[in-house]
Design a protein around this nucleic acid. Structure first.
Lengths: 235, 235
DNA sequence: TCAAGACTGTCGAGAACACGACACTCACGC
DNA sequence: GCGTGAGTGTCGTGTTCTCGACAGTCTTGA
């Protein structure tokens, strides 16, 4: 399983027929967002839809005690807030920019108008929703059954697929939150992976040295999720 | 938080305006299914949509090694396979009848024809999809963060909400699968709950003795999921 | 240049759960 | 009534991860 070529453009937008894309494009604004930027919290009305070209947005489920754990991610193969194209919706998750993000943004109401006129967009939205659901239910199983090391590797691979470098900026503290484990556990796993020569890391930065090895250490969930996206969105 | 009144009829169907319901009703077949009945496996084309009146269907994510863990459930507040009303779809999960089930069933193509004509049905399908997604992402967090006891209680409560008795037929072995833990762990938790006077159990049967106590022992996820359904579907 | 803060390393006790093994007992069909 | 099989009880070992604490180190900005 090769790493897919980093996508210069959002593949949902690219999948639209030109005439439908033209309707969307009128209202698209190209933006760049820094790491850590908070886009939505649970309960927020979804007023904009984001189509990433390069980078990752994490969707996190918030608990009462403030814990926030990743339930799915959005990259160039998908879009953030896309269900708001169908009807006004409130966000169920916290959405946070994971890596520096280039994206196209459109107002939810504008997109809804296009949705009204474009069967192709409606079909894409439906498929995307299903793929995102598939991502979530695989994560349910993964969190219950698989080791922190396997999930750590899955997280790195998923991130690596969606950016254009072999370097990911993230702290162990942050990754511990994503995975829902203690920071000390992440430290131990990271050190073990570094000793195996799979990754190299320093303050707030992880370098992916041996992607092949990562794929050997992660669980099946990585492939299952990728296949679901490919089958439904051909991306 | 009181247990909701057991629903005699599927509340999605009841939420349809009479004229739209009439379109669906022509093709509805009332059925009863025994516990353990397999309705879908991953990859199966979704040829029928089920609207439970009473009972629970488990959606389980299958792993390569045969492990099957519950990612969401369907009861009288929802429907199984509803995304197939929009377009032909393959199941992502294994769907298994959890408790004796009374339901109404309709061919996916028939339902799609109604979907084409009924804005109310389209809206319901969209809301249901979102609620199911919400169920899944809460389960992601729950499996990563909460104890087996809390998840055990959540499972019982969710089941209790959707049936009309205080008795649930299930083996500890089966529940261990649902929760993705060892059978011996379930045995220990069940014994502890029985000693606290919360449940009583015997071979293959669990009686819910003190629902209030169950609610005190479960995690916030139970309430969050219920609220999501209520907000989106008013059920 | 120095202080403050952010990030990482490490330790140790303890809880939670996995995993395998085996004995027991209840229910059902013959 | 009896055997068979499914379901449960229990034990013990071992691993994984939690949780709190504190020390060390890099980075940044004043």
């Amino acid at each position: 399983m090769q790493r897919p070529v980093p996508l210069a453009q959002n593949s949902l937008l690219e999948a639209l027929p030109p005439s439908d894309y033209a309707l969307v494009a009128q209202n698209l604004v190209q933006i760049e967002l820094e790491r850590g930027r908070l886009l939505y919290d649970p309960g927020d009305p979804i007023d904009h839809v984001y189509f990433p070209h390069d980078g990752v947005v994490s969707l996190m489920t918030l608990m009462e005690n403030g814990a926030a754990i990743e339930s799915a991610t959005i990259g160039p193969e998908g879009a953030l807030g896309l269900m708001a194209a169908v009807a006004p919706r409130l966000s169920l998750s916290r959405a946070i920019v994971q890596t520096p993000l280039r994206a196209a943004r459109i107002g939810a109401e504008r997109l809804h108008e296009v949705w009204d006129r474009s069967p192709a967009l409606r079909d894409l939205v439906d498929r995307h929703t299903e793929a995102l659901y598939g991502h979530a239910i695989q994560s349910v199983a993964c969190n219950a059954l698989h080791s922190v090391e396997a999930r750590f590797c899955r997280w790195l691979l998923t991130c690596h697929d969606r950016i254009s470098t072999d370097t990911v900026a993230l702290t162990q503290e942050f990754l511990a939150d994503m995975l829902g484990v203690q920071r000390t556990t992440v430290t131990a796993v990271a050190r073990s992976l570094q000793e195996k020569g799979v990754i190299r890391y320093r303050r707030g930065v992880v370098d992916i040295v041996d992607r092949q090895a990562l794929q050997g250490l992660t669980c099946e969930c990585y492939g299952v999720i990728r296949n679901t996206y490919t089958r439904l969105l051909g991306a």
